[in-house]
Write a protein that binds this DNA or RNA. Structure first.
Lengths: 365, 365
DNA sequence: TGCTGGCACTCGATTCTACCGAGTGCCAGC
DNA sequence: GCTGGCACTCGGTAGAATCGAGTGCCAGCA
């Protein structure tokens, strides 16, 4: 891709001016506008000549003959890669973030959901949160609870505070004591190990117990493989404001409703080491008019999940990147240091935050 | 409301024709169209005269002088109350429902989410599922699991298979054995009783244990009061197709994103004993161009939660009502008879359905 | 050589006009 | 009391005229 990385400085400046302007106004940008832009000190005629070149090289298009230019995906890409720094948040936004992370508390799911709301509010794009996978979190506790005569619930608590459950159909009526024993056995076999790593089974004299243990282990394996296709989408209504064609809105929203698609989109982008995917760069046609900004989430030093933003290709990349990165960093801090295993990591601030309602009750008891 | 209930048969027929036509076409309906409708055997001039009357009485409006009439909320209301039966689903839809409930399985959350998708697909409106409240479900198991030195997780399993959790900050490092003991104590104090009904506390000799038990009981009370403002929204992208003004779409979607608003809207409608709320009838201005259809969910004989549909006021009420009712009935059956306490209720079919993946594993073990 | 001002041209958007026709209200007559 | 007839309204569409932002090209200047 030689032409992607090399553009003489003037062309680059012109491209930058066009992209910035277009992001702001959503109107095709003409040569005069560009010529008047600070930093451009040539005439509109020269700008026009350069625009022709930029168009030939695929950075710009003209919606129709007598209109200004708008950036192509390639144009945005160059803008993002070469012309802009991630940017920083405005003071008001910084304040919002700070305040948010001071106040937020509760279970992880709630927190992720609210974080998604925050991110969307900061940027006015739709936001996406890919929860940290529980793959590597060690099992902390396993329990079998009888619900009905031939129905039990397997409840697995992971060290990161996540609780997974699965109903299990029993072959026979099983007493609560046997269930408890089976739960204990399974816990012994799997504790302190990640969900996926199931021990080979050991047999006892008790056929019924063995069977229940087997069922539970199966369910645990099932838990390990399934589940991880969940994603939290927030502020999707803001996409309606970003597009003017109602049909575009509909198709984008309907794509966003398919969790699986969103998850794989994000994973794809992350895997390719990108933080931005523009228009057709990701292969999802219904989202061809969208761009995705992703920031991986790193909890206690290892990557887990991600936060992202979905907006029109003419999104404000610097701001979106800044917001995603700041929020992901703060969220990562927040999720780590306390719920994760390493002992002694419960620092004062985090624990303090997490108290809230609890605190009052605690004082009383 | 004398004029709401009394309309001479001809007026009613004309109103019905207009509403039906408008629901189908979204175009103002003229007198000629009505006169040509089967069942109307008067001239267009007569229809016009009646239309004037209907407009005076508030059932119809004219977008502008030389246009046809469109129904007002009051017009729809009369249509729903007096002119139409709930209707039945078409064979294709029946088949979809049957197939869906044959296949669906898994945890309740998944099932509700998929059901919401089904309902939306059936009607092409947005669908809403208000999960059965756990208020009355008795506690089946309580457990305290240590996550970090001064952090524990309270895990409560209810008889309906729901699992609730809460992190608890501990005043001190507490050993796993004490946590387990505290969990057991709390379980003894609360088991078989609904979440809200907390026992008065009994003291032991052990101050630390008492404190942990106190914290756990507080957390349980907290669980009982909070939480119940959750709602599952599905197919909201279909609303984009229902409205043509992108601003309407945005505002409706953004209202739908506020779980709390949706919950109280549904509760309001249910409390007033309605199954349909049209336009401004419910007091939520941003949804003034929407109608809501609700069907309460009855699980094992008692009302719990609801399913609903949200569409434009010109929605197909008979079909929407039919879909909501059928789905709510089937879902109620499915949620009951097995997960709920009464022993022996695990009938063959339900248990069979629930097996799926499990079954294979079971055979193998 | 490269930039610039000038110029003819394009073409979407806007405005205006005319006009059609669906729809109305009214009324005289059956 | 219903109906056909009629004059009238007025939104929507089509076509023409106009505007103007924007373009590509080119000759001339530094």
């Amino acid at each position: 891709m030689p032409d992607t990385q090399d553009l003489d400085p003037r062309k680059a400046a012109i491209l930058e001016a066009i992209v910035s302007e277009y992001i702001g106004t959503a109107q095709p940008v003409g040569s005069q506008h560009v010529a008047r832009t600070a930093g451009i000190s040539v005439s509109s005629a020269t700008v026009r000549a350069e625009m022709v070149a930029l168009e030939r090289e695929g950075f710009l298009v003209q919606p129709h003959t007598s209109a200004g230019r708008i950036p192509t995906d390639k144009g945005y890409r160059f803008f993002v890669d070469q012309l802009t720094e991630p940017g920083i948040l405005g003071p008001a936004q910084r304040h919002k973030v700070a305040k948010f992370f001071e106040q937020v508390h509760g279970e992880m799911e709630d927190m992720l959901e609210r974080t998604s709301g925050l991110l969307s509010e900061l940027t006015s794009y739709a936001s996406v949160v890919l929860p940290p996978s529980h793959e590597s979190a060690p099992v902390r506790s396993v329990q079998l609870v009888g619900l009905a005569p031939r129905l039990a619930l397997l409840v697995v608590v992971l060290a990161d505070g996540a609780v997974e459950k699965r109903t299990i159909d029993l072959p026979d009526e099983i007493g609560d004591d046997v269930l408890a024993a089976a739960g204990a056995r399974v816990q012994a076999m799997t504790a302190a190990r990640p969900l996926g790593a199931t021990d080979e089974r050991t047999m006892t004299k008790d056929r019924v117990l063995d069977e229940v243990v087997g069922l539970a282990l199966d369910a645990m394996k099932d838990l390990a493989t399934a589940e991880d296709d969940r994603v939290i989408v927030g502020g999707s209504s803001r996409l309606a404001a970003a597009f003017d064609a109602v049909e575009t809105v509909r198709s984008v929203l309907s794509t966003l409703e398919q969790q699986l698609v969103v998850v794989s989109l994000l994973r794809d982008v992350l895997e390719r080491g990108l933080s931005v995917a523009i228009g057709t760069e990701h292969g999802y046609e219904p989202l061809a008019s969208c761009a995705v900004v992703v920031a991986p989430l790193s909890v206690d030093g290892h990557e887990a999940g991600a936060v992202g933003l979905l907006g029109p290709t003419r999104m404000n990349y610097p701001q979106a990147l800044a917001a995603a990165r700041v929020v992901s960093a703060r969220l990562g801090e927040r999720l780590g240091g306390g719920t994760e295993a390493p002992p002694g990591r419960v620092d004062g601030r985090t624990a303090e935050d997490r108290v809230t309602k609890r605190r009052g009750a605690h004082g009383r008891s």
